[in-house]
């Protein structure tokens, strides 16, 4: 039995301990904002915050996170999250939208650690998040806008 908190609520899981956190979140907890894109930590669509740090849930066996705190796109809150989501809407960043939960989770984590990132810092933090629609140009701009709004 694995016990963890998911978006602030205590949850338990007693299925196959190898089950990746991604599939626990989606199939068992029915939170579908966190996406499957590759299953091998190459695309970042499954990014969550694990004990406050960005983490690819697709390569995180549930047994590994006993006692941990998991936040998904449905549970993010705070000024960084608000600033990022507002900036994303302001620039209409998403196209197909499938990768954007992961993009936002990475962007929020970056701003929590670096409130005013440079272009290089944005690229450094976001290289793990693929977007096949290539919305990167707007993602970069939106992160700057979010940083400016927080400073604001």
């Amino acid at each position: 039995m694995v016990t963890f908190t998911l978006n602030g609520k205590t949850r338990t899981f007693d299925g196959d301990p190898e089950t990746p956190l991604l599939w626990v979140i989606r199939d068992f907890e029915k939170l579908t904002g966190t996406k499957y894109g590759c299953g091998v930590a190459q695309c970042g669509a499954c990014t969550v915050h694990l004990d406050g740090m960005p983490r690819r849930s697709c390569i995180t066996p549930i047994a590994m996170i006993d006692g941990s705190d998991v936040i998904t796109i449905e549970g993010i809150a705070g000024k960084e999250a608000e600033a990022v989501q507002t900036a994303w809407a302001g620039l209409d960043v998403p196209q197909c939208g499938y990768c954007q939960s992961g993009q936002i989770m990475s962007a929020v984590a970056l701003l929590q650690m670096v409130p005013k990132p440079t272009d290089d810092e944005i690229d450094g933090a976001m290289t793990g998040n693929l977007c096949r629609c290539a919305t990167y140009h707007r993602i970069r701009a939106a992160i700057h806008n979010a940083a400016n709004a927080m400073e604001g």
Partner: peptide, 19 residues
Amino acid sequence: KLDTREKTNGAAIFTLDIM
């Protein structure tokens, strides 16, 4: 765009999300 909000908060439902 009409579909931006749901695509920034995880609420947008794709086929994979039908449960």
